[in-house]
């Protein structure tokens, strides 16, 4: 008896949902992705709790205000690994009949399926930040342009500064980003390029999951195991900060090459403990992606990798 009541409730809800669905679709369906004559572009971000992505989103909003020829609908997930949540966001964009979607994927492979669904629904998709996996895209039978920096080249450039400073045989370690994350792999590869090109000796390479506190622990134990470390290649500035803390505490003579150029590393570049980092103009990336999306809505064909500007930052150009 009591269960039947609850069951009735389920049936009611489901029916209500279904009826509402049928009713709305056939009647007052708003014009697709068209608000006040301007096309709607969905910006789907990841990990808005991360300042980097937050800046990117803010940059996009400002840029759209300046352009004034589209409506931006931006959303994002709570954390970097919420793949499922991001898929739901893209699905909502499709439901809302956006004209274009600009996406910073939380996973280079897991988002491909829903992206393909969007492309097949005749929505223009532009990929920013982390590149969607080529193999997976091919398998899904869609092509999506990528607007973003060359992480591997950037890491190589940053690493080269350290290699030049230490010279052949310099002993270094790498702090990696999240295992499996595409940008982490690219940066690690870039650092490895710099290591082999500069003839450095790689003592250890471990992940600290992009995190300052974890990098602090990981690097502390690395330094204990190898007191002769001369350099650290950190895959992002957050991890570099964790390593620098150890270097300062132990008064070790270790130099750091890093990636991202967040404001907090400025003093370390000036003091010399950090020799290089790389600015990939993250806050501009979403805006760039939107520009390309608008071009595609306008009928232009955009394919392949649209590389965006990156800039090596050292003591000389960090400013004061």
């Amino acid at each position: 008896m009591r269960r039947r009541t609850a069951l009735t409730a389920v049936v009611t809800v489901t029916t209500a949902l279904a009826l509402a669905g049928c009713g709305q679709e056939s009647t007052d369906d708003p014009a697709p992705g068209q608000a006040g004559g301007k096309p709607t572009v969905c910006l789907v971000m990841k990990s808005l709790a991360n300042e980097y992505f937050q800046q990117m989103q803010t940059g996009a909003v400002t840029h759209v205000k300046e352009r004034n020829d589209l409506t931006l609908d931006s959303s994002g997930t709570q954390n970097e690994t919420d793949v499922d949540g991001q898929v739901a966001l893209v699905e909502s964009c499709i439901t809302k009949r956006a004209r274009a979607i600009v996406i910073a994927p939380a996973d280079s492979k897991a988002l491909v399926q829903v992206v393909a669904k969007a492309v097949k629904a005749d929505i223009k998709v532009v990929n920013i930040d982390v590149k969607l996996d080529d193999g997976a895209l091919q398998q899904a039978g869609v092509e999506v342009p990528f607007v973003g920096p060359d992480n591997r080249d950037g890491a190589r450039q940053s690493g080269k500064v350290l290699a030049d400073l230490l010279g052949k045989g310099g002993k270094v370690v790498i702090l990696e980003g999240n295992p499996g994350a595409d940008n982490a792999t690219q940066r690690k590869n870039g650092f490895n390029d710099a290591v082999s090109e500069g003839g450095l000796t790689l003592l250890d390479s471990k992940t600290a999951h992009w995190e300052t506190d974890e990098a602090n622990q990981v690097f502390a134990s690395m330094l204990t195991a190898h007191p002769d470390i001369q350099g650290v290649l950190a895959s992002n500035d957050s991890m570099a900060l964790g390593a620098i803390k150890v270097i300062q505490e132990r008064k070790a003579n270790v130099k750091v090459a890093s990636f991202d150029n967040i404001p907090a590393v400025k003093e370390h570049l000036q003091s010399g403990v950090m020799v290089s980092t790389l600015d990939q103009y993250g806050s501009k990336q979403a805006a760039d992606g939107i520009d390309f999306a608008m071009k595609m809505i306008g009928g232009e064909q955009v394919t392949g990798w649209q590389k965006t500007e990156i800039k090596l930052i050292t003591k000389d150009n960090v400013g004061s």
């Binding site: 409730a9 389920v10 009611t12 209500a16 669905g21 709305q24 909502s92 439901t95």
Partner: peptide, 24 residues
């Protein structure tokens, strides 16, 4: 169940596209 029905009613009124069959 009552809470859920109320929530659905709320979104039907205020969330665009909520009631479309695609969204369901």
């Amino acid at each position: 169940g009552v809470a859920l029905v109320a929530l659905v009613a709320f979104f039907l009124a205020f969330a665009p596209y909520f009631g479309t069959s695609q969204n369901v």
